[in-house]
Amino acid sequence: MTGEFFAFFILAICAIGGAVFMIHFDRVMHMALSLAFTFFAIAGLFFLLDAEFVAVIQILIYAGAVSILMLFGIMLTKHQEKEQTFTRTKLHQWLSFLFALGFLAILMSVIYLAPFTLPAGDQSLYSVNKLAEQLFKSGYVLPFELTSLLLLVALIGSIILAKKEEKE
């Protein structure tokens, strides 16, 4: 019973709880917020694994940027609006249950088949500088640059599309 175990337990419950509430709530704003909470808990799990860089990026991109973008869109919806509830048939429920069960089975089998026999590596070797070296000095430069180019094209494309709408 170490502190790490407790921290993992609390963070895992937070992550799962956020996800469950995200499905359970019927107002979009609440859903988006509980999703952000899940992202935050996952960042905490990364911190627990000594993966500081990934954890911080998780907060920056998911808990910060993606969530705020969602909230920004949702803010313009009606205040008291609730998601339409529709009655599910018995067949629908059974089919959903079967699919969920099947997915769980596949997931568990993959986890059990994975060879986790090696002892954990020394985390202190995986610093930010090492990460950068891996990225830029061992042949991943070209894919990295191409990805950034793709993102730039997407950005400019969205600006052009927005400009077009303005003219009409």
Binding site: A36, E52, F53, I57, I59, L60, G64, I68, S127, V128
Partner: peptide, 18 residues
């Protein structure tokens, strides 16, 4: 004494916007 202290600041401060 985080190795990514600067990024941590930028990441956490963006939560306030939310």
């Amino acid at each position: 004494d985080l190795a990514v202290g600067l990024l941590y600041y930028m990441a956490i401060s963006s939560i306030t916007t939310m």
